[in-house]
Each structure stands twice: as C-alpha cells, then as structure tokens.
Design a protein around this nucleic acid. Structure first.
Ligand code: MN
Ligand code: MN
Ligand code: ZN
Ligand code: ZN
Lengths: 153, 153
DNA sequence: TTATTACATTGTAATCTTTATAATTAGTTT
DNA sequence: AAACTAATTATAAAGATTACAATGTAATAA
C-alpha cells in the first residue's frame, strides 16, 4: 500500500508539472492556493466536491475562501484541465481530466469508480439522424452497489 | 396543429385514468392539486421543472404552495410514475414515465427531446465484471444543438 | 350522519450549494 | 522598484429544495 502510494506520487509529479505548464501557457497565474487545489485534484482518487477540496486544504491555508476553490475549479474547467460531474441533489464533483472514461456510482455509499469503455459513437450518430441535432458529446453513468456495500448487505 | 392536440388529449385521457388507478392502488389519495400536477405532467411535452408546474397551475390554484408541487413529485417518483432528470446547475426536470427512453438536450436553448434507443445492456454487463458492482441501471444523455438553434447560428 | 384519524396542503423559515461584489493582496511585467 | 492586472478574501445574495407547524380535507368507523 505504501509502495503503491509512492509510485503514484511519482506519477502525479509529472502530471502536476504538465498541468502547471498548461496553466502558464493559458495565461493563468500560479498562486499557492491554485497550485494546492490543482495538486489535490490530481492526487485525489475520490472525485472530490468543492467542499472536500476546501476542507482538505484548510490545514495548509487557514484563510482560504471557499470562493477561491470555486474560482479555481472554474478556471481549470474553462481550459479543460478538469471535468465537472453533476448529480442529482448533492454538490458537483470534479475529475482531473486524464483520458476519457465513464463512471460507475454506488447508490449506497456514493463511491465513484472510473470505468473505461469505448465511446458510444453509434448512439451519437443515430441521435443525429433521428433528431436533427448536431451532437457535441454525451454523458453516461452506471449505478449500482459496490463490492464493499454488497458485503455489508 | 389543433387536430394534433385533440388527438393527443384523447390519448392522455387514458393515461391519466391509468395513473390515477396506480395512485389509488398505492394507497395515495387523489386531491385536486395532486390530480392537476399529474395531469400537467402527462400532457406536458417539455419535461417541466417544479416551477414550470407551479406557474402553469397558479391560475387554477391561486393558493397552491410550491411545497405541494415538490411533495407530489416525490410521491409520484416513489411509486414510479415519474422520473426526475437532474442536470448541472439548473433545477430538476420531471418526466412522466411512459416507456424507457433517452434524452437529447440542446446546449443552446435547453430543449429536451426524447430519443429511443435499445438499452445499453452490454455496457452494464461489462461494468459488472470489470468493477464488481451489482448494477441496477444507467443513465445516458446526448448533448448538442437542436435544428432551431442551428438555423439561428 | 357525525366523529375520528391519517394524510395533504399551506405558508414560511431554514438549509445548502453556488455566485456576485467590493476591498485587499500578490503575481507579473516594465 | 513601480505599475498593472489578476487572484484572494470575506461576506452577501441568489436559487432550489426541504423542514416544520398549523390548518384543512379525504377516508373510515361509530
Ligand atoms: Mn473519473
Ligand atoms: Mn422524456
Ligand atoms: Zn458502496
Ligand atoms: Zn435549441
């Protein structure tokens, strides 16, 4: 487990550098708060909410405003660094944008797991011909019960 | 256009009766407000928000509370009469539950159009084997620009 | 029919997430 | 270092939904 984490940390190090370059080349300033939000997003495996991020960083930045988190998430979204995942009642979740993938969501504990599957191009194509829309993208999620929650009945 | 509407009204008449039976057999009382919300949902073609319904009925029920609309929508949802469609920032939309179908959404004007396509069972099956989840259902929507909005550039 | 009971509606307050605003702070460029 | 501009902060405001308590009404029993 430790090894796993260390290995991941090495990996994210590159991703952070890459993301910072992306920000710089988009004319976005690198501030300590912004860097921390970005870093947390890249290292997090939980598809965090804005409040998750806010709480995770309040130790390091006791004066940081929740508006800063939202502002930065919007900036990251605008330049394509992160994707916003919106669900029913609860708050949005944010996903650092690596490769395209879908999500499987546990209805019992709320866990969100990545799920790789070829893009549903046929569905998009048919929708175009049937509805006359010019299709730009689609969204799909799968809901169910995760292994942990199945065990606990 | 008139003929079209009259024809549809005949059709919805049966659906309303059917839905009322469903409510009765579920032990849910039929009140005038509840009936009006149900009727509006069945006749509406726009996947209305709670506020759409509230506004549409305020002529007939000047004293109706917005809480009543929400309460009834919850009741309808609980017994499976309607489905709640949740999108990002905006408010939920409600769909009278006829047959299973997907939706195509215009990113320009917000229009939501029904789209019939065979259920993505293969995707669900693969998700089960890959993630170990017990899958219950999925959701999919397609986004793009509707014909009307394409015309207006 | 009347009384009882449980459910539904109403009006309003509260909650929760997200955005707007204005003042202050801090990167960046010259 | 000075000037310029963007980012942060604190707080207020907005918008959607839910909670709550009082009142009203449909269903059922007496
Ligand atoms: Mn993901
Ligand atoms: Mn529909
Ligand atoms: Zn779970
Ligand atoms: Zn449109």
């Amino acid at each position: 487990m430790h090894e796993h984490h260390d290995h991941e940390h090495d990996h994210t190090h590159d991703e952070i550098k890459e993301a910072v370059e992306h920000l710089k080349s988009s004319g976005v300033r690198i501030t300590p708060q912004r860097h921390a939000v970005l870093e947390y997003l890249i290292e997090a495996e939980i598809h965090p909410t804005a409040d998750d991020i806010y709480k995770a960083l309040e130790g390091k930045f006791p004066n940081m405003s929740v508006a800063t988190v939202y502002n930065n998430l919007r900036v990251f979204k605008d330049i394509g660094l992160v994707k916003e995942l919106t669900y029913g009642d609860a708050s949005s979740r944010f996903d650092y944008n690596t490769t395209k993938h879908y999500h499987v969501i546990c209805e019992s504990c709320g866990k969100i797991v990545d799920f790789h599957y070829p893009s549903l191009d046929e569905v998009e194509a048919l929708a175009e011909t049937v509805t006359g829309f010019e299709v730009s993208h689609h969204r799909m999620e799968i809901y169910g019960t995760c292994p942990d929650c199945k065990e606990k009945h």
